[in-house]
Write a protein that binds this DNA or RNA. Structure first.
Lengths: 182, 182
DNA sequence: GTCTATAAGGGGATAGAC
DNA sequence: GTCTATCCCCTTATAGAC
């Protein structure tokens, strides 16, 4: 890949993470690079191609994870490898996660909303005062998991009662106060 | 609230869930209602106000949950109530979750991506063949939790090693094969 | 590889009639 | 409450010079 293409991808990743894909125009990418829109179009025929170039490496790595895990002998080993590799992938691409994540426009609206202050209380209530980083990670996982569970079309066939029971169990499990690891 | 306003909110909710907020224009909302853009603007001064009207009821309910929980006596009771109420809120608003969720443009790109087929294998590998609804819910929770954990700015101060360790523990916990509830 | 210039269209938003 | 008509801006994308 040419240097110019790499610069486009790097600029796009930063802007996508900050403003979301829909909130990022080619003009913004060009400005960030210090060139014109036409120069960007010389590297990528469409905006969609830029998005794909940004997420391609991670998707490719996901594929590698699946293949490597499938080559292991026991189901337990396969699962262990897949979990560890997926977690590692997320941690190494924290910024990219933002690209895939919530619409920044909506996120901003919610954060600025006056009704959000009691939600801070809710968080305090679930984690206790001065929560450890571990507790905070678990809480964020629960929040993301709950929202995605509500949104994911792959769960559209799961009836409300089953969904509620399982979410309750998983959430209780993750938010259970446990002694810190020794 | 006037009937006309309610109709706008209902149409907007459907379209936001399908196309995302950024992907939904006032023209689309007006078309869905069978009126013109100007009629929509008569009900709401800006698009932003429509978004707020859509998410307002849920935010208000979140506040109620926090207040009700805070009134309970023991920390354990407060946590139990908050968890159960939050889960219930999500289940009763499954469609709304989509509004808050991932950018539909990006979601479509990923789903259509050729490199996604091995990811299906990865899912099979983590859940086993013909997974139960419960196992599928847990997997979706893990996926949402991992992505949000990577994206959430509130965790920006957590170093990679701590994040990795905690995500590994939480993910392993949720994906551990367990005997079905009796 | 980068530029200027421009096309073609859609976005949010407004004015004023009915 | 709804309409027609319009404004202004920004968007993606293209043509052709350097």
């Amino acid at each position: 890949m040419s240097r110019a293409r790499e610069r486009v991808v790097a600029a796009a990743l930063e802007l996508f993470a900050e403003h979301g894909v829909s909130g990022t125009s080619l003009q913004m990418i060009a400005d960030r690079m210090g060139v014109t829109k036409a120069a960007v179009y010389h590297q990528f025929p469409t905006k969609e191609e830029i998005v794909l170039a940004v997420i391609d490496p991670v998707l490719a790595e996901l594929s590698s994870i699946a293949e490597a895990a499938a080559a292991l002998r026991t189901p337990a080993a396969r699962r262990r490898h897949a979990i560890a590799a997926a977690v590692d992938l997320v941690v190494r691409n924290r910024r990219l996660s933002r690209v895939l994540s919530f619409d920044p426009v909506v996120t901003r609206l919610i954060r600025q909303h006056p009704a959000m202050s009691p939600v801070t209380d809710l968080v305090d209530l679930l984690t206790g005062p001065a929560p450890s980083p571990e507790a905070r990670v678990n809480l964020v996982m629960v929040a993301g998991g709950l929202v995605l569970a509500g949104a994911e079309s792959a769960l559209a066939d799961v009836d409300d009662e089953t969904l509620r029971a399982q979410l309750l169990e998983a959430t209780t499990l993750l938010l259970k106060p446990r002694p810190p690891r020794g």
